[in-house]
Structure formats: structure tokens, C-alpha cells
């Protein structure tokens, strides 16, 4: 618990530094493209379009969801925005400490903000996709509820969860490098299991019950429910899922910050 508090204080103290670095961090990852950082937004939109065409046009199974095709598209966009934010933060953040280690050791740079930098750099696609989803819904004259308090709650939850996972995995990846390809696969899998592409309710009921324990499901559906407010299955089980989500997040944060502090001085021996 103490290490968690220490790490969180470090985050707040060095937030300014992290924010300044984000720009250059993003730039260095998209330097080689002509379109540069625009790809960060185009890429998820393309992804959504492909899935939309595949599922809505091809399978045509969810057209009875409220709002028809526009409703389904916005539903998917918001889910994709939230899930991509989480998965990219975890994926990039888990490698961030390893990447920054060489530079960080040469100056007084707190390593625990490396995951924060990757988190901040992934915020823009989240905003864009959620706004796009809301915009499409407004264009189609479908109902949109903008409850800022609930949105802030789910946003904070997403940030804490993603940061905790990134911190935990960034330490584990240094000790066991074989984890990093596994993380990518698991995150890909997670997209299908958290109801980003098609509703979890449409799966077998037993599977749905189990998938509802998944913290990313809570976040993805939490955002959707806040904005569109028609997730009956989510609302029924909300209290249990909230407890589960925060338990998992707290465990991840505690273990992650502990391992980070414990191995911080040893990182260079494992790289």
C-alpha cells in the first residue's frame, strides 16, 4: 500500500514532465510516416470500419439493436475508443520502462512515469472516437445522454486500470521478456471478449456471465451505458461488477507498484 501511494505521488509530481515529453514520444513513434500522428486516429477508425462492414453488412445480425446501423456504428466506435485506449496503453506502456531505461539512467528521470507517458499519448484517439460516436448518434437523431460525472468516473477508472496494468507488466516484461508477445495476443483476444465488436449479450448466457467479470467489459459498457443508456444487461449487474472492477484494479496497482519499486534498481541487470 505504501509503494502504491509512493508511486501515485510520483505520478502527480511528475505529471508536468510527462505531459511535456508526450509530444516528442508520439513524434518519435510516427516520424517515418508522411501523415505522422494522424495515423493514430485513422488507424482505429479504419479498424472500426472494417469490423462494421464485416459484421453489420456481412453478418447482419445486430441490426435490431436500437438505432439501426448508425446506432450500431456509434456503439462500436465508443467501445473501440475505450478498448483501444486501454489496450494501447498496456501494450506500449509495458515496453515503455524498458525503452526509457537507457535514457532515464543518465538523468534524474523517474521511471514510474514511463507508463504514464504512454497513457497520455493514447488519450487523443479515445477522445476522437468517443466524440465521433456521439456525433454520429446526434446526426442520426438518436438519444445521447451526457452525464459528465459518470463519464469522469469511468474515465478515471479506465486510467487507473490501464496505468496499473502497464506498470505491472512493464516490470514483468523486463524480468521475463517472453511476456511481451503474449501481451499483444491477450489484448487482441480481449477485444472480442469485452464486447467491443459485437454485444456480449449475443453470446451464450454462461459465457456472458463470465465475461461480465472482465474489467474491460465494465469500462467499455460503462462508457456506452453512460452515453447511450440502453445496456440492460450491464445495468442489472452493475453493483457486483463495480466491486469486482475495483478489486482487480487495486490488486493490480498494489502488486505493480510493489514490484516496480522492488526491481527498480535491478532493471539494468535484466535488460
Amino acid at each position: 500500500m505504501n509503494s502504491l501511494i509512493q508511486v501515485l505521488i510520483e505520478q502527480i509530481k511528475n505529471h508536468q514532465i510527462a505531459q511535456r515529453i508526450v509530444k516528442y514520444d508520439r513524434r518519435s513513434s510516427s516520424q517515418d510516416y508522411y501523415l505522422g500522428q494522424v495515423w493514430e486516429i485513422i488507424n482505429p477508425i479504419l479498424q472500426v470500419s472494417v469490423y462494421f462492414l464485416m459484421i453489420f453488412m456481412g453478418l447482419r445480425s445486430y441490426s435490431d439493436r436500437a438505432g439501426g446501423s448508425w446506432g450500431f456504428l456509434s456503439w462500436m466506435l465508443v467501445g473501440m475508443g475505450v478498448y483501444r485506449f486501454i489496450s494501447q496503453t498496456i501494450n506500449v506502456g509495458s515496453k515503455a520502462v524498458k525503452r526509457q531505461l537507457g535514457i532515464a539512467a543518465k538523468m534524474n528521470f523517474p521511471l514510474s512515469i514511463a507508463p504514464q507517458i504512454s497513457l497520455l499519448s493514447n488519450l487523443l484517439p479515445l477522445y476522437v472516437l468517443v466524440l465521433l460516436g456521439v456525433g454520429i448518434r446526434m446526426y442520426a437523431h438518436l438519444s445521447v445522454h451526457i452525464n459528465l460525472i459518470a463519464l469522469a468516473y469511468y474515465f478515471a477508472a479506465a486510467v487507473l486500470f490501464a496505468y496499473g496494468m502497464a506498470l505491472l507488466l512493464s516490470t514483468l516484461v523486463i524480468i521475463v521478456p517472453d511476456l511481451s508477445p503474449l501481451i499483444g495476443t491477450a489484448l487482441n483476444m480481449g477485444m472480442w471478449l469485452s464486447g467491443v465488436i459485437f454485444p456480449v449479450e449475443s453470446m451464450s448466457p454462461v459465457l456472458m456471465d463470465i465475461l461480465q467479470l472482465n474489467p474491460t467489459y465494465y469500462l467499455v459498457y460503462g462508457f456506452r451505458n453512460t452515453l447511450f443508456g440502453n445496456e440492460a444487461a450491464f445495468n442489472i449487474n452493475w453493483d457486483n461488477m463495480t466491486i469486482l472492477f475495483w478489486t482487480i484494479t487495486l490488486i493490480i496497482l498494489m502488486v505493480g507498484s510493489h514490484l516496480h519499486l522492488k526491481f527498480k534498481s535491478q532493471f539494468s541487470e535484466y535488460v
Binding site: P205, V206, D209, L213, N240, I243, I251
Partner: peptide
């Protein structure tokens, strides 16, 4: 926390079923 997690997850699965 782990205990709470197990308990609540089992409970919620049960309630859901």
C-alpha cells in the same frame, strides 16, 4: 481483495444464472 473478488464473482454468476 482476492477473497472479495472470488466471493463477488461467484455471487454475481449465481445471481445472473
Amino acid at each position: 481483495l482476492i477473497g472479495l473478488f472470488m466471493a463477488v464473482s461467484l455471487y454475481s454468476i449465481q445471481v445472473a444464472s
